[in-house]
Design a protein around this nucleic acid. Structure first.
Lengths: 244, 244
DNA sequence: GTCGATCTTTTTGCATTCATTTTTTGGGAA
DNA sequence: TTCCCAAAAAATGAATGCAAAAAGATCGAC
């Protein structure tokens, strides 16, 4: 199994899947549920979606007006987001969007890799033939997009596959943790050198062949390795681009 | 590599290591840092240490008096702990210590296994000969405790080894996540059937031989597998006890 | 003109207060 | 006695108020 220079898997770089979603971002509307929870989700999306500049200061007052609430629930939400690692809270100096340097980004990617590796391993224990067939179907769709060089469709399929693997693991704690890390990485905007990525596209596609094959054979340990290296190489490619 | 009925690794069941520590639990003293952060650490330890009954309701007022603060910072801390999964916040019905059923415990153990697997893999990439030698030294200490049937010393060494592996991974995000999950599991009190565990002790010891061997050879993928199964079997033994 | 200090303004951290919901309690009827 | 409903008590969710710290502005010295 040689996979030393795999493609970055463009898709999940841009949309690492499994985010809580449901953006009410900046809207005063709150359909149901407690105010705090709605605010938390809304604020998280607001930040993940990149509405706030990287490293920019976040005045509480401004966000209060933005969301139409008082400071108390906002501050509670900020504390949670800080604990999640999305923002940082400097003592007496307010909140700011957490800036990720290359090293931190490397760490997050590796953890994502570890989580996907775990997901693959667990999926092999539980997944049904029907679920594998479903992934296979999306895989073939993805391949067609690849042949037609339609990146967007390819991205969607790729994302769906990774999401399905995580879901197939049947572990809520894993899904939640994965979603959290995906959100943190999602903020990073890759000034994607598309031409460069296209060169690696073929390798990414071959990688996914390996993934599907291991999944079919329920080879958990092997799939675990593949997925980790998959993410590792994706990170390498992504960082090579941004730093080039 | 057969490791189907490994020992539960008594040690890290009881003390899964890497917790933030620094228990001021219930003391009004706060040496330095912001009040909120100190409170958060103190409250987390207070809960992790098991001072609150499982599933018990947590009246805010009572905790406020306990820590000598008003409800605002306390509620902020509770929101964070809820996000961490340590407690649950029912709308309008307050906080209670999160009760873990067998299924959730299984999930947490599997994620811990995945994180340790990742740690082992990363450690193999970075670890120096000196660090391996250090782990080896503790391993031998542990072996001596095993021969003398001194469980406490064995526990300490075992814990130290796992902690050193995670640290050797050199990934702060991983360490933090690992610590969080360790805290959640740590609350679970195992009515340890020690006699039963002693029977599996030998296998646990042999398991650690495999871990050390893989680490020496920097066999990341292999170590990854061993550590995951190690945790998996530990969980099996632990649950077999509590449910027996 | 630039640098530095002091005063003002803004912002943060926490306590307190208010409204709403839940829980408890007390009384009455079957 | 037991069950049920209403009222009181308590707890939660959120807003406001206040003191302290930081950011910004104004003035003065060099």
């Amino acid at each position: 199994m040689t996979m030393t220079s795999m493609s970055p898997d463009l898709q999940d770089i841009d949309v690492p899947a499994l985010t809580p979603a449901m953006a009410l971002a900046g809207d005063t509307v709150r359909p149901s549920g407690s105010l705090h929870d709605e605010l938390l989700v809304g604020l998280r999306d607001y930040i993940v979606e990149g509405h706030l500049a990287d490293g920019a200061r976040i005045p509480e007052r401004q966000l209060c007006e933005r969301f139409g609430i008082s400071r108390t629930p906002l501050r509670e939400a900020l504390k949670v987001l800080a604990a999640e690692g999305l923002i940082e809270l400097l003592p007496n100096r307010g909140a700011r969007v957490r800036q990720l340097d290359a090293e931190e980004l490397r760490e997050l990617f590796d953890v994502m890799g570890g989580l996907e590796a775990l997901a693959g391993r667990l999926a092999c224990e539980h997944i049904s033939d029907a679920e594998v067939a479903e992934i296979e179907r999306v895989h073939h769709d993805m391949y067609r997009f690849y042949l037609r060089r339609e990146m967007h469709g390819y991205f969607q399929c790729n994302q769906a596959i990774h999401r399905m693997i995580v879901e197939a693991a049947g572990n809520a704690a894993l899904s939640a943790t994965y979603a959290s890390f995906a959100g943190r990485i999602r903020r990073v905007r890759y000034s994607a050198n598309l031409a460069k990525e296209r060169d690696r596209w073929g390798e990414a596609m071959r990688e996914h062949e390996l993934i599907l094959d291991a999944l079919r054979r329920r080879a958990g340990s092997e799939l675990s390795d593949i997925l980790f290296l998959h993410l590792r190489n994706k990170r390498r490619a992504a960082q090579a681009e941004t730093l080039a």
